[in-house]
Design a protein around this nucleic acid. Structure first.
Length: 340
DNA sequence: AAAAGCCGCAACCGCGTCCCG
DNA sequence: TCGGGACGCGGTTGCGGCTTT
């Protein structure tokens, strides 16, 4: 029944609409640091004036490092068409078969072109009027399967194979586009795609967390000025506990790492975040900053200032995506571990 | 060159389901 | 066993960018 429908997006005091680079940065930084065990609490802890739902959506559909960006390949489109023929509008299940693609993305692609494409095909077939293949969707499965199997090396080369490179090399084998190994009926029966489940949203997060686990808690979020009243509006409970700039000091309990750090680490984190912000156009020139922190630069594995900026996780997110992004995150973040 | 229309993407909304106390 | 909270999913909408007139 309608139970448990969280009034999560209480309209009061929360931002809506497009995400700003600042918000993106904050969300990324927070999740990189703490993961996302509780979406509802996340915005508060991350200092975001968003509802948890919005954060989750943003992360899953846009910010996740394992997302493949760019146009859909022919193989992917074919896979979507076939899977849609089998599964219907089960976008999440279809997405589970297409690593690096989100259900939202697939849904959009389907509604925008694939639907038309299929309609045209059906028309043609009907015009040709033949065929035993009454259901166009299922028939091509085997042939297209073979094509999709090779997809990994060919199609996905541009941005790398998300789940594969971003985690373990072995994981590439698990690429769910291998439809022939996939028992779609399983997916029809129970929600959870079997062993070959590529990267459902939860696991993707866990992969990320584990990936970053070694350097967890290295990122310190900048303080944001949010009126306590807003928090009380958001959670409906007293926000008294967090005041005096605590709002953005997430999990101060868990954020113990902060205390492990010295001023040096804090400075390094600040530097990293400043870079993020710069990359997002929130700051002045990069040169200014590197001049401002020449000492810290040395810590960054001898990267030139430019290199360091080019390796910026957020820009990587928006440019190349996943594998590189995750690598870069490690590259950028890890040095601060060396600082310790 | 400007205006109008179209298209695609990102985000929101509401419901269903799962999990936990 | 029941009730509540949180998450996940699918449908829909709004907006910005691009194309066409």
């Amino acid at each position: 029944m309608g139970r448990g429908r969280a009034p999560c997006c209480a309209k009061v005091g929360l931002n809506r609409g497009s995400w700003t680079p600042q918000e993106d940065m904050r969300l990324i930084a927070y999740i990189q640091k703490h993961g996302h065990t509780n979406w509802r609490a996340l915005p508060k802890q991350a200092g975001l004036l968003r509802c948890g739902k919005s954060c989750r959506l943003r992360w899953i559909n846009y910010l996740r490092p394992d997302l493949k960006r760019g146009n859909f390949t022919d193989e992917e489109e074919e896979a979507i068409i076939r899977l849609h023929g089998l599964l219907g509008n089960k976008w999440s299940k279809i997405a589970a078969c297409l690593p690096g693609r989100t259900d939202n993305e697939i849904k959009n692609v389907w509604n925008t072109h694939l639907k038309k494409k299929v309609a045209q095909r059906e028309k043609k077939k009907a015009g040709a009027g033949s065929g035993d293949a009454g259901t166009p969707a299922t028939a091509p499965l085997s042939s297209a399967t073979s094509s999709t199997t090779t997809h990994n090396s060919s199609g996905g080369s541009d941005s790398g194979d998300q789940c594969g490179t971003s985690r373990e090399p072995d994981a590439t084998d698990v690429c769910p586009l291998q439809l022939e190994d996939m028992d779609v009926s399983d997916m029809l029966v129970d929600g959870a795609p079997p062993a070959a489940q590529p990267m459902p949203s939860p696991s993707s997060s866990s992969s990320l967390t584990t990936c970053v686990g070694g350097v967890e808690e290295l990122i310190e979020l900048p303080v944001i000025d949010i009126e306590p009243e807003i928090w009380s509006i958001i959670d409906g409970e007293s926000a008294v506990a967090r005041h005096g700039g605590d709002a953005a000091a997430p999990c101060t309990g868990t954020g113990t790492a902060v205390s492990t750090s010295g001023a040096e680490e804090a400075a390094a984190n600040d530097w990293w975040l400043e870079n993020l912000e710069k990359e997002l156009g929130l700051w002045g020139s990069a040169e200014e900053d590197t001049q401002a922190h020449p000492d810290l630069l040395d810590h960054y594995t001898g990267l030139s200032p430019l290199c360091a900026l080019e390796g910026d996780p957020v820009s990587t997110y928006f440019q190349t995506g996943l594998a590189a992004a995750e690598t870069e995150l490690l590259v950028v973040v890890e040095p601060s571990a060396v600082l310790l």
